[in-house]
Amino acid sequence: MELLIDGIKKAFDMILSGDREVFAITWLTLKVCLISILISTLIGLPLGILLGLTRFKGRRILLLFINIGMGLPPVVAGLWITMLLWRSGPLGDLTLLYSPTAIVMAQILVSLPIVTSLTCTAFQQISEKMLLQIKALGATRMQTLIILIKQLKIAILAAIMAGFGRVIAEVGAAMMVGGNILGDTRILTTTIVMEVSKGNFDIALALSFILLSVALLITAALTFLQQRKRIS
């Protein structure tokens, strides 16, 4: 209990005193996570729509891999990205290992399957008849798509939130591909792990409150967007 109160006190101290380091770490966390989820959405949304609305050869196999990917352990994702970016690896020349970009790559790898699969599930529930009705109203393919996205707004935002939850909570991959380098790749989750291992529970607890606040803020914004103006 004392620890908890200490942690809360420390968190307020850190935020109120405008601790540069904490601010930088939080900012990087926010940046990395938002970029990851943005890219995951930009790829996962169209891919999910394609998988949900069309039938093509190999679709089910692809879907199977995506569904397996939803449970991909972050350390495995981290390992793959590390191997990819390793000096002698296929993308070694880019020297991206231990950079924020590497963290973004790992986070995309773990969140993309979630966004894609949940989007696909939503679109698959649109009936053939509904598609026909929309077409009958004179919609082009593009207009049909826009109507469907609006109709499925709630499910799509839920998919994005689920992906974001994965990204913000992620630590194993970020540790492995980022290396927790101060001022460069240190993000909130990796800092917490480090502080705990040093025995600084109060700092770790303080950081965890900051992490929670960030997650809460983003999720609240998405929930607001999702639940806005539902008429009855």
Partner: peptide
């Protein structure tokens, strides 16, 4: 598209949109 848009159809089930 212009031809499709000359017609309109009320299907057997009233498939209305959420709105």
């Amino acid at each position: 598209l212009e031809l499709r848009r000359k017609f309109s159809i009320a299907l057997q089930q009233s498939l209305l949109l959420d709105g």
